[in-house]
Design a protein around this nucleic acid. Structure first.
Lengths: 347, 347
DNA sequence: CTGTTAGCGCTTTCAG
DNA sequence: CTGAAAGCGCTAACAG
């Protein structure tokens, strides 16, 4: 049955034309007579002709394919992001390859390798937390495969990136709590080595200084992001004489764990102690003790913008120029928690 | 720079060999001398040679690519499922194309079309809720592109599918509540037309009969899955003389909305009234009023199994035979809610 | 063990 | 306006 898939040649033969004429007719080449053009198109339709893209890709050195490499889709942030990427890509006739690194450098490398071999036109990636060697990304230059990083960005010169300004986001969070009347503001930060943690800390310090408070190192504790790590951090807070009452947490899960801990210590969440976190997961409205507010990072939008940037690069002919890299900073937004269930189905 | 990407020909010329010899050497063809083989491989390495997959795909009529078409990744169920698909695919040298239908038949059609043109080796799909015409799927036969459906499966004969046995799952749910001592068991079901709803209803009826209770139509109400729809359903329950105390809900979100409503009516969740739902989202542990239990559907596993099935089909040479379609039913599991935060990061 | 030839399906000069 | 020919990079008979 598969042999019956019609090719351009078959059409040519049936019509007593040459393959090139058929090709041109199908592609609306200006120098083709209307008569033959319609003739060809009609037969193509009747035969159910479909161009063999693999042949076209091969020939044109262009696959209309872009690769997306990120840690894991089970994180809402990333599934939202790739959703944005895919939506925008498909609008522009591109199709998306998916690869999950699971925060493993080896896997990330293999995926990049595989995508390169598949000759993707470009790549969008949020790198693995554990990646320390970036050769697999640099290598892409040799193949003229542009790459746009988002969210988790490697320390390489002149790269294209889309990211949130977490420094500024954290300043917003601190200001919010201050305005609410909290004076002792703590930070439960993520692992030191994450750039994301560093940015939060920086924003925290700036905000503290700007408001003429003095930075108290006891008010900043790191968690490994596990429930236990967060509970430990809270325990430490409570063991100090100066216990923070307004706490900024690395993300929503940390906020939930922290709130749980505070609750067990008989604190009234939202009164004795309040939280502000990042991510703004669409589940906060169902939480027992949701954070007062979250710093929304717009993952869907980040994905969309990254795709947009990549398309721009792909479409600008002057590649291989002295490109210093494009950079977009997306403004975060502090949103009060009030999510809606939008009728999702889990059949 | 891109012109420097070395080809098999370049290697052949530099070594005074023929292209075919080089090709064979690179592919460990048995009939190649060790000397030349190592020679070729060495030079290939030095030159940084990488095969052009598009050429190979074109030539071999095989792309090592599979397409995944599903409603939307922002639903946890699907992001988990594709995660399973991708993991298993990459283990087997396949790469995954992603397409989101957003429950729109037109988009689904376009995606399938596009994937077919990209000559994917196979497709895995959970169809759009609004798809009524299945021609775009049937058409794939003509191109020898096998397809495996999971979760949401079209009413077509002889197809390959992986799905959960929701009838049996619902029976488990009812039995659980009965064992807990609840006698008035209600069902907040999804939209009528969904197969998923029909299966739940069937399971519900079977369980009621099996336990020698009599089926009371007042105890079954449908919701459009919105928060309001669910609240309305609950209001109706409460307006009856016989208000259910154990309620099975279409999914976790419905359970949460329903619980919220009950709470507002001053019911004590887990005592006055209890819920059992489906999906078992990894957020239940943070919920104010989580359902007592959830029917776990193992989306990651469903994805993995679907991919496994597809690989099996791809590898069995005897295609185009009188295949009646493969079917896998995955057993659901009733799990009590006690999820763990596993250290997720939302930087 | 290796070279020659042909060809996958399509596009694209270059002629006419 | 259309045809002939070449070729994208690689593999696979078919000969030697």
């Amino acid at each position: 049955m598969s042999d019956k898939v019609p090719t351009i040649k078959v059409i040519a033969k049936k019509l007593g034309l040459s393959a090139s004429t058929v090709s041109r007719a199908l592609n609306d080449h200006p120098s083709i007579g209307l008569k033959t053009k319609t003739l060809v198109k009609q037969l193509a339709k009747d035969l159910g002709y479909e161009p063999n893209q693999t042949a076209i890709f091969f020939q044109k050195r262009k696959t209309f394919t872009i690769g997306v490499v990120l840690p894991k889709l089970s994180e809402t942030f990333f599934s939202e992001a790739i959703s944005g990427i895919e939506d925008f890509a498909s609008m522009n006739k591109y199709i998306v390859f998916l690869g999950q690194s699971h925060d493993d450098e080896e896997r990330e490398k293999k995926i990049i390798e595989s995508m390169k071999n598949h000759r993707v036109d470009g790549i969008i990636s949020s790198i693995s937390k554990n990646t320390t060697n970036y050769a697999h990304f640099e290598m892409l230059k040799k193949y003229d495969i542009p790459i746009v990083f988002f969210d988790c960005i490697p320390p390489i010169e002149n790269i294209n990136s889309v990211e949130c300004d977490m420094v500024e986001g954290t300043i917003k969070a601190v200001s919010f709590l201050l305005k609410k009347g909290y004076r002792n503001i703590g930070l439960i930060n993520g692992p030191h080595k994450l750039l994301a943690s560093q940015q939060r800390l920086e924003g925290y310090r700036i905000a503290i200084n700007k408001n003429r408070l003095k930075f108290d190192p006891n008010l900043v504790i790191n968690t490994d992001l596990s429930t236990k790590g967060t509970h430990d951090a809270m325990a430490e807070f409570f063991s100090h004489k100066r216990t923070p009452t307004g706490i900024i947490t690395f993300n929503d899960y940390v906020a939930l764990d922290a709130a749980q801990f505070a609750f067990q210590r008989n604190k009234t969440i939202g009164k004795d102690i309040s939280f502000v976190s990042y991510a703004n997961l669409p589940i906060n409205s169902y939480m027992a003790y949701p954070p007062l507010a979250s710093i929304e990072q717009f993952p869907y939008d980040q994905g969309k913008r990254a795709m947009e940037m990549l398309l721009g690069i792909l479409e600008s002919e002057n590649k291989s120029d002295t490109n210093k890299g494009f950079r977009i900073k997306i403004e975060t937004e502090l949103v009060l928690n009030s999510h809606q269930n939008s009728g999702r189905i889990f059949s």
